[in-house]
Computed example of a mutant assay.
Amino acid sequence: MRWDWRPLAGFLVGGVGAWAAGLTPGTSALLGLLVAAGVLLLSRLDGTPDPGWDRERLDRRHGARGEVQDLAWAMVGRDGRIGERVLRRLREVARSRLARHGMTLDDPHAQSLLGTRAVRTLTRTTSPLPTVADVVHTLDVLDRLGPRRATPTDDGAPTDD
């Protein structure tokens, strides 16, 4: 290890400069120590920033299956019911899936497409929040809904494009 002369030089420059400015020798020595401590601190600091974590960025389409799966792991609260955050996210996914089919949650045809239990889970605004079983059912219904719009055939039965 090499001996670092910079703090000593800072002490001498600070102390001699203060003594030349007319301060007492004790005050000059104290000021020299202060300058030496500053030089020592600055010489030990590393100015390069720490490298950040390389995170893999996945390009996901809005309302894709991965969003539904991300919800599944964080659903259960302490009381066995889901939290408001998960319910809000579930509603976003449902709106996206229904929009692909030309519907909203308020649409009367949404209940025939999703079912009463899923619509009740998605539109609940009062306590108690839905149970985990209700949310799992709703996730299954949204997953079966599919990413594409159902178009009616000539006989009126819906088919996937």
Score class of each variant (00 low, 15 high):
residue 123 T to R: 09
residue 108 P to D: 02
residue 105 L to A: 02
residue 96 S to W: 11
residue 96 S to R: 13
residue 129 L to S: 07
residue 153 T to E: 12
residue 74 A to I: 08
residue 92 E to Q: 13
residue 71 L to H: 03
residue 37 A to S: 11
residue 18 A to E: 01
residue 24 T to Y: 05
residue 25 P to F: 04
residue 42 L to I: 07
residue 158 P to D: 06
residue 94 A to T: 02
residue 144 R to T: 07
residue 96 S to A: 14
residue 116 T to L: 15
residue 58 L to K: 11
residue 111 Q to G: 08
residue 43 S to Q: 09
residue 42 L to F: 08
residue 33 L to W: 04
residue 109 H to Y: 13
residue 119 V to A: 00
residue 88 R to K: 11
residue 29 A to G: 09
residue 83 G to P: 05
residue 4 D to Q: 14
residue 59 D to L: 12
residue 84 E to A: 15
residue 108 P to Q: 04
residue 17 G to V: 08
residue 19 W to R: 14
residue 100 R to D: 05
residue 84 E to I: 15
residue 103 M to Y: 01
residue 160 D to N: 07
residue 160 D to L: 11
residue 109 H to D: 14
residue 38 G to E: 11
residue 100 R to L: 14
residue 141 V to Y: 01
residue 144 R to F: 05
residue 117 R to G: 07
residue 32 G to K: 03
residue 27 T to L: 15
residue 105 L to V: 00
residue 125 T to D: 06
residue 161 D to S: 09
residue 73 W to N: 09
residue 19 W to T: 07
residue 11 F to M: 11
residue 102 G to I: 05
residue 121 T to E: 00
residue 9 A to G: 09
residue 58 L to R: 13
residue 121 T to P: 02
residue 150 A to V: 08
residue 64 A to C: 13
residue 62 H to C: 10
residue 49 P to E: 15
residue 3 W to S: 08
residue 37 A to Q: 07
residue 69 Q to R: 14
residue 159 T to W: 06
residue 122 L to F: 01
residue 46 D to I: 12
residue 157 A to V: 12
